[in-house]
Design a protein around this nucleic acid. Structure first.
Lengths: 224, 224, 224, 224
DNA sequence: AATGAATGAGGTTTCATTCAT
DNA sequence: AATGAATGAAACCTCATTCAT
């Protein structure tokens, strides 16, 4: 039993290692430039072995994707719940992006893979029972809620379509991350990039807020 | 002589036809999924024939890219010059996007190819003598000017960095176009997409403008 | 009739021009690197037009080859006949090579093509009635005669097989020309190359001669 | 462990088999006429498999080339060291050629590839630190030494330029091998070819030697 | 569980040659 | 007579995936 347990743990380790390595490679080179051989080499495994842990390359990508998007939403959700208004909730989302990107570039992989797995996101989303949604769908749902809440509490401009705004916010964030992802690694200066993100996010916050809101909520703090 | 002329015209037609077909294919499937064989098949030519008109696949992409970006800037520039304020100039840029996208989806190809040809745009740009800039570089320059003008004439918020804002605007536009490009063709409903663009652009306009400006300049008209 | 004549002359001019151009290209780049398009471009003709004058690329090569080899033999033969001994005849052959190469690098084309047209030369040669031989065959025959003559008149070592010696001489000459042909054009210094040829030829002359001969016949003059 | 060893041996065998097959094909058809598909077919592999063992066609050629040239020089060098005079050393080089060619036609591949890898050899050679030379460069150096030695010990004619003579010898040998290589395989009668080589080599030996030397050193033995 | 070995399908590019005009 | 246009065949190379051991 101890042995079986150990085996199982080893297997999980390998599994996780493959995912981590693939993520790194994607962050370094972009999804398209990562081959199964690249992954195998860095994992010090044979290509064939990868297929013991994952049925296909697609499956690796999917797993990274869903694992990461779950993680992101776990990070964001409590911050949303603490927010005292709809506007603050939106602000909390942007803050989370800045913090997440600040702590690691991993998020680049998330967005790179997204374009392979659910390219139509956030335009097209299958209807799912509440609780059955995947990370990105849930994330979208969260933002819709934030916007609705903001309209209701008067911190966001009335007359907005929450779904449309949610899509807009997602696309803008996505666009920035992808632009960053295309930078060759040696030009990715985290500080500059965060400044760029902050700039865009602040513009959007100002664009969405009503006069009634606290001006301080429209500014994102510097993160060093 | 009439014959020579006709022949020459036919040759140019083929040349143009190949470009047009490639553009269509890119719009349909994305740059990465378009092969020389695909182009040849749709043009009802052999692969070898393509190489009579273009020295390489890259050359086809480049030609489409530079031709389109020149066309876009020619479209946008006069509208900028007519604008009475910096804010209106920015608004004119957004309007142009809406109009261009409304008349054809071609612009999707432009952005798809951009990521191949100058992936670091708009982050990294080689310095060039004025007048020697490629379309995208010139476009960036235009927007920097608009923003500067807007700060000077008080229609845009003071304290903004024009270069940073220009990059932000380009990235946001790019992000939207790319999100649209990833939609399968049958789901690309031009009206919905334009509404989506309009939504984002209006948010950004509001986010950039000062109170002093004309409220009507913050709204983009519907284009049917 | 005047017109017909002119036409015919024009046709011959084109024909000759194509041959000349091809020869130049071969000298510059080597046989393998010359394409029909290269020839057409430099001749300011279309590829298709080449096929009006020659049925195939092979045919162009063959014609250059036979024309040049005839010219070479016409150059060499009278010098052989003036020679007063077998040894001097051999010397005259070498002298001819030095002179021919000195006046133009064309001979490089001759040897380049040879390897395509009659690769087995000088090992295998079809039997032909006297007078029906092609240039290279005749050339070989000449050298066989020279050697025979030299053995008979005592200037060349007895016990040699004239045919074998003839083949040896041809192979050695060929080897040098081909080595030169492989040099990139900018490194082909005619003076150095002639010195190299002279060196080899003198060694061979000394190796073939008997003591009886005039020592001065073993030295080749410098050609500036 | 036994298994690992066996696998590794098999892999090396395949590697070696590909090299051997390629060598054979080159010997049969010449370098230019050998394609990756040819090699794959004869090896009963797919083209893709070849790329598991070698990164490119060029790499196969290079490996054959360096392996063979190393082998040749290992064969020749001890024979040179046993030689009692410069002339005998040169003779030993020729002897080696005869023996090597007698035991296998492989050497044809060596010379065929040489013209691809270092076409300017022996005219142009990069300077290298002693001990860093490739096989052919080392070979050239050896021959220069032999000639120098021969001039010093009086067995070779004074007034010769050792470097020039070395180049001449290499070109002559190369010329013969290449002439042989162009023969269709069914006409390559090893005995005849060796006789031909012997004939040329003996002429050159006589041409280089002084009267002082032992006449028997000017004759190469028959090898049956 | 692990992997060495193999491959089919597909990518870009080149070139001698043909044919309608 | 001249050619613009076209192409089939073939070259090198890559990669996700399979399978026997």
């Amino acid at each position: 039993m101890g042995i079986i347990e150990r085996k199982s743990r080893e297997r999980e380790n390998r599994h996780a290692a493959i995912l981590a390595i693939t993520k790194d490679l994607i962050v370094e080179r972009g999804v398209d430039a990562v081959t199964m051989l690249d992954i195998a080499k860095r994992a010090e495994l044979s290509k064939a072995t990868l297929y013991l842990y994952f049925p296909s390359k697609e499956a690796i990508l999917k797993e990274i994707f869903f694992e990461m998007s779950t993680r992101v939403i776990s990070y964001v959700r409590p911050r949303l719940e603490e927010a005292k208004s709809g506007l603050e909730a939106i602000r909390a989302v942007w803050m989370s992006y800045l913090e997440l990107f600040g702590s690691s570039e991993d998020i680049i992989a998330l967005y790179g893979i997204k374009n392979h797995i659910i390219p139509s996101y956030p335009f097209i989303m299958p209807y799912r029972e509440p609780g059955m949604m995947t990370g990105p769908e849930e994330f979208y749902g969260c933002i819709v809620e934030c916007v609705t809440r903001g309209i209701d509490d008067g911190t966001l401009a009335p007359g907005l379509d929450p779904k449309s705004i949610a899509r807009s916010l997602l696309m803008v964030a996505s666009g920035i991350i992808e632009a960053v992802a295309r930078l060759p690694r040696e030009h990715r200066d985290v500080r500059i990039i965060r400044a760029e993100m902050k700039s865009v996010f602040e513009i959007m916050l100002r664009g969405l807020a009503t006069d009634r809101c606290d001006r301080s909520a429209l500014v994102l703090p510097d993160i060093e």
